[in-house]
Design a binder for these strands. Structure first.
Lengths: 232, 232
DNA sequence: GATCGCTGGATTGTTGAACAATCCAGCGGA
DNA sequence: TCCGCTGGATTGTTCAACAATCCAGCGATC
């Protein structure tokens, strides 16, 4: 995640020959981090749970030092929290954090969509919308969730900024961690499915201001909903 | 930096008693990271320079493993770049990165100022402006630079989002790394000194749209200047 | 003369063990 | 009930070793 989109700031096909084809074999620490990220996203590790170095080292068959390195990486992404001399815990979003996260999303998503983007990038947004429709038709709740994330990720990708992409990826990971599948019932999905359609249409029509307004309204409402569900 | 503003998302004086007064004694790894950050900001370590684990471990009198942990932290902040099995190098901003960085700044700075902020936060912006004036009067080039950074940091702080604050801090650190003091001659400063004044006045007057437009114009021009100087 | 393959040295990646520092729970005494 | 102590557990840090990888240099070959 944090490593896959490093190169995405390159204008596609600009100086193709020079591309860094560096055959990445992820290090052990990275694979441990990846495994933990997976378990976090999947809800196998719930917020607040304690992660003991020795235990995880043994479970994954790696050295404690390596686990430590993975912990440092995930702590940098705010997925884990390190309490000095006390251990690392799965991050928990407090009431204020919800607003905080949505503030970030408002900043980068609205800014990205207001600036428009290349036809290819816009097509990617459209693709995410269609992906959502297909998932809805198939009653695939899981697919609906990721389709929505792809949609918002594609919006940020309009800006062609690798840094914004990684920031967005981290924020989405944080939200996945806390708003796990259980809390995301089908009720929500029906709402934004048509809304994403509208936003995408406005974007395709070049009505960037309106697209931005729609997106902003969605984010505000979404924040309200999440705040209502979780702590006041 | 990345550790000092962790708590800034708390509404000031909300539940003061509960505050985490946890007497932070920074770990060795953190102090190593801090030292490296300092050397990076000070230009003692130039972009592209190679950092050998063993050398730094010996220089700072710590273990190689600890240096490793610090490297991981700084790599997460994009200040260092890890090339697997080849070593870590001080990050270098390519031509595309300049646009990338300014894209982030446009997103979060403009968004923050457009949403306004509490009187205290606005006062902090004003304070940064005055700080710049004093530095200018004293011909303190160094002080001018940090005053400008404080100004833009204060603008982001309007949003009261700890996450935006750390993002901004990282971006500013990246820029300090590349646009070191040498490239920032007094010519630039005279420009934005009056401009910051205007932006701040508009903010104080509640003319948020205008403040945002001015800020956006400044960022666009600043990007142009930097692009003109460094690689096309 | 250029390319290929090898080899040795240097650096990073990872492990395992050890010890110090710190925290926590439980226990006993005032 | 509160205080302080103590033992056990976990983290922080170091050290040493080895495997994996890369790089520069050097011949050998065509």
């Amino acid at each position: 995640m944090a490593s896959a989109d490093q190169e995405s700031s390159e204008p596609a096909g600009f100086d193709g020959a020079r591309a860094r084809m560096r055959l990445r074999v992820p290090s052990v620490a990275e694979r441990v981090a990846e495994e933990l990220r997976y378990q976090l996203a999947e809800g196998f590790l719930v917020p607040g749970a304690k992660l003991t170095e020795a235990t995880i080292a043994e479970d994954l068959g790696v050295s404690r030092n390596t686990v430590r390195e993975a912990f440092a990486e995930l702590a940098g992404e705010r997925l884990l929290i390190r309490q000095p001399n006390r251990g690392v815990y799965v991050a928990t979003l407090e009431a204020g954090d919800i607003h905080d996260v949505y503030t970030v999303r408002r900043a980068i998503e609205v800014s990205s969509i207001r600036a428009g983007g290349s036809p290819e990038r816009i097509a990617a947004v459209r693709a995410a919308v269609e992906e959502g429709k297909r998932a809805a038709a198939a009653n695939d709740n899981e697919g609906l969730g990721s389709a929505n994330q792809h949609f918002h990720g594609a919006i940020v990708a309009l800006a062609e900024s690798g840094r914004l992409d990684t920031i967005m990826a981290q924020v989405l990971a944080e939200m996945r961690l806390y708003f796990h599948k259980a809390t995301m019932n089908a009720h929500f999905y029906s709402d934004w499915l048509t809304e994403n359609e509208q936003i995408c249409s406005a974007l395709e029509a070049g009505e960037l201001e309106r697209a931005g307004d729609l997106l902003l309204a969605y984010l505000n409402r979404s924040e309200q909903q999440q705040t209502a569900i979780h702590g006041a």
